[in-house]
């Protein structure tokens, strides 16, 4: 299926957010996720299924003022 990951359309085969993250190389990374604009806690990624057109934000620690 095709989902929007950080503003870019990507093809993923994983059925859940956890599977998609692993597929995209963020399996062990310190990241926070939001699905379709809502915070998705790490503990909920395994149980959260994805559908075509979903919007996934994957955020990491970054410089800030």
């Amino acid at each position: 299926m095709r989902i929007d990951v950080n503003g870019e359309m990507q093809e993923v085969t994983g059925a859940t957010v956890a599977a998609a993250l692993a597929e995209l190389g963020w399996g062990d990374a310190k990241v926070a996720t939001a699905l379709n604009g809502e915070f998705l806690p790490a503990a909920a990624r395994d149980g959260q299924t994805l559908k075509d057109g979903d919007r996934l934000e994957v955020l990491a620690p970054m410089q800030g003022g």
């Binding site: 950080n6 503003g7 963020w26 990374a29 310190k30 990241v31 926070a32 934000e57 994957v58 955020l59 990491a60 620690p61 970054m62 410089q63 800030g64 003022g65």
Partner: peptide, 19 residues
């Protein structure tokens, strides 16, 4: 130290270790 969250483009993990 103030920090932010931004879309992960590769540098986030190393930055966090440094902080």
């Amino acid at each position: 130290a103030t920090v932010s969250l931004r879309r992960e483009t590769g540098g986030g993990q190393a930055f966090w270790q440094m902080i």
